[in-house]
Every structure is written in C-alpha cells, then in structure tokens.
C-alpha cells in the first residue's frame, strides 16, 4: 500500500465508514435491542404486525407489476428509439429522459388529477358507460402501480436502448431474409440479444419500486402502505419507533437479497456475460 493510494482512498473510506457503515450498525444494534439487552423481540413483533404484512405484500405485488409493465411498454419503445436515426432519435431520447429530471412530486400530482374523485379517468370511464357514479382511484394499489410505472418507465427505456443500439441492423436483416416476420425477429433476435439491458433495467426498476417512497406516499397514502412509507408512518406519525429500526434493516436486507438474486439467476441462465 503506497502513499498515493492512501491519499486517494483513505478520505473517502472514512467518509463512507462514518456516514454509512457506523449509522447502519447503530440502526442494526437498535433494531436488536430492547431495554438495553439483545433480543429479537422487535423483529418478532414486526413479523406479527398485520400492517407490516400488508405493506410487504403490497410492496412486492406493486414491484412485480411495475417491472412487468415497464418491460412490456419499454421493450417496443426502446426498440423503436434505437432504430430511429438522426435528430428524431435525439428528440425522443430527450423526451424520455426529461421526466427523470424533475422531482417525484411534480410527476405525481397530475396523477392525482387523473385518478382522483370525478377525475379524468373517472369521467372517461363514465363516458364509456363503464361506471354510473364518479369514482376515485386514488390511494388504491392500482394508483400506485400506474404512477410508479410512469415514473420508472424512462429508467427501463434508457437501460434497454443502451444494448439495443448495439444490435446491428444486419442481424435483423439476416433474420428477416431467412423467413422471419418482424414480430418473430423481435422475439427471436432482438429480445435474446437485449438480455443484458433487460436485466439491468429489471434490477433498476425493481429495486427502485421496492424502496420508492414519494409516489406511494402521494398516490397510496395510508390506504395502500408499502415498506418505505411504513417506515415514515411508524416513525414520525405513529411514534412506534421500536419497529422503525427493524423495518429499515429488513428493507435494506431485502434490497440486497433481491439484487443478488436477480443477478445470480441471470448469470445462471447465461444471459449476462461478466462485464463489471
């Protein structure tokens, strides 16, 4: 270990240790202590807590749906953008990225207008004769799914464009010349060769939804609680601080496990070459 390396890495290592590792350890310690002694009581209470169970279920089902929806919408869109050339491509990229540059409140409030009582969607549905009374979709699971899909779609699209840009037109032409339709080519050639980007996108969107706070807070409120909003509600609103630490540790562990699992299973399937 020479002096240059020390000068380069030591300050940042200290920064991470002091501001990340030590606070996390304090958090873990707090989650494991009851009245000064080590105990799993907090976790036991947590796993028996019905609100927590509901939040956990919500978090997972919302994350799955959002990943599914962003993939479903993102794959054709990313393909379209990657096969566009020149100025139009830049414009489309810009329009995709633009919502990412504003905060989640800005992006969520319009959904209150769309999904709220007698909102745009409600009126559209009654125009179509689907409902008789004005309804509100706010604070439902569906609202959180729609809003989160909206917010995380650009992440998915950008991850996918990255790999799709590298699939040459000739490969597509080859598939078509061998007798495949465009749709067959999309499924047989484009998607299998986009696996690396799909995995990156899935990891990004899944963990983002798993840990998202703002959108579920605005569109789900207290009716559709997820883990991240539960941390805040048990803390600042309900004062059940003893549970906050254990939920936090749980959420953190969950994130790590999910990322590891997706990456592991991806490398098992063989979709991703070791590149990092």
């Amino acid at each position: 270990m020479n002096k240059e390396k020390l000068v380069i890495f030591l300050p940042s290592l200290c920064l991470i240790v002091v501001l990340v590792f030590i606070p996390l350890l304090m958090l873990a310690q707090k989650s494991l202590s009851v009245d000064g002694t080590i105990s799993f009581a907090n976790y036991l209470e947590l796993f028996g807590d019905s609100t927590f169970k509901k939040a956990l279920k919500n978090t997972f089902s919302i994350s799955f749906f959002v990943v599914f929806a962003t993939l479903l919408i993102g794959l054709p869109t990313a393909y379209f953008i990657s096969r566009t050339q020149g100025r139009l491509k830049n414009v489309l990229l810009l329009l995709t990225l633009f919502p990412l540059l504003t905060n989640a409140v800005v992006r969520s409030i319009s959904w209150m207008i769309i999904l709220g009582y007698d909102g745009i969607l409600s009126r559209l549905m009654s125009d179509l004769g689907l409902i008789d009374e004005p309804i509100s979709l706010m604070y439902s699971k569906l609202a959180v799914i729609i809003g989160s899909t909206y917010i995380f779609l650009p992440l998915m699209i950008v991850s996918l464009i990255g790999v799709m840009d590298n699939i040459s037109q000739e490969i597509e032409d080859a598939s078509i010349s061998l007798g495949a339709s465009r749709l067959q080519t999309f499924f047989n050639v484009i998607i299998p060769n986009s696996m690396a980007g799909i995995i990156v996108g899935v990891v990004l969107v899944f963990t983002a939804t798993l840990t998202a706070y703002t959108t579920p807070n605005i569109l789900g409120g207290t009716r559709t609680v997820v883990l991240a909003t539960l941390v805040q509600q048990y803390g600042t609103t309900l004062g059940r601080w003893e549970l906050v630490s254990s939920i936090s540790i749980f959420l953190f562990a969950l994130t790590v496990v999910v990322i590891t699992l997706i990456n592991k299973s991806a490398s098992l399937v063989g979709g991703r070459n070791e590149e990092k």
């Binding site: 040459s168 000739e170 490969i171 032409d173 080859a174 598939s175 078509i176 010349s177 061998l178 007798g179 495949a180 339709s181 047989n188 050639v189 299998p192 060769n193 696996m195």
Partner: peptide, 28 residues
C-alpha cells in the same frame, strides 16, 4: 423480404450472437 427465400451472406456475417452454430443454421 421474408417471403423471397433468398440466401444472404452479410459483410459482418450477422450471425445471431445468442444462438449456437447449430441454432444459427437451423433458424431458417
């Protein structure tokens, strides 16, 4: 194109990277 049944060899070969040699050849 996909109904013409012409064999084309591309300059970059354009082999499907996700398929083995056998799968590439059997694709058509």
């Amino acid at each position: 194109v996909n109904k013409r049944n012409f064999g084309i060899v591309f300059q970059s070969y354009a082999l499907f990277p996700n398929m083995t040699v056998f799968e590439n050849v059997s694709y058509g």
